[in-house]
Amino acid sequence: MHEFSLAIEVINLAQREAEKNMAGSIQEITIEVGDLSGVEADAFESALELLVKDSILENADINIVRTPGKGKCNACNLEFEMKYRMATCPQCQCFPSEISGGEEFRVVSLVVE
């Protein structure tokens, strides 16, 4: 359940950014969670919901954007959506493929006031 630690990281990061920008409150935060990031988006969302109390994000609207995994087959160069890290190429059934997207785990933006 590293999602709890990660949720704490997000709250700390938001707090630092709010202070840096002399913001009184954070209205909205957008977080990108790639399907191949190693972070379970649902668990992360639950952790964040539980932990925001009494934090700068308590009243913020939290948008979690999921980015699909993308792979490029090492054998036939097909680019395809990778639902999981061990996915084989849908065209030639080869493995492994190079991951070209979906490993993101980042705070995209904040809306502050």
Partner: peptide, 12 residues
């Protein structure tokens, strides 16, 4: 009057 801060910061 709100301000949008674009971050793109890795959470780790």
């Amino acid at each position: 009057a709100k301000k949008v801060i674009s971050l793109n910061v890795d959470i780790l």
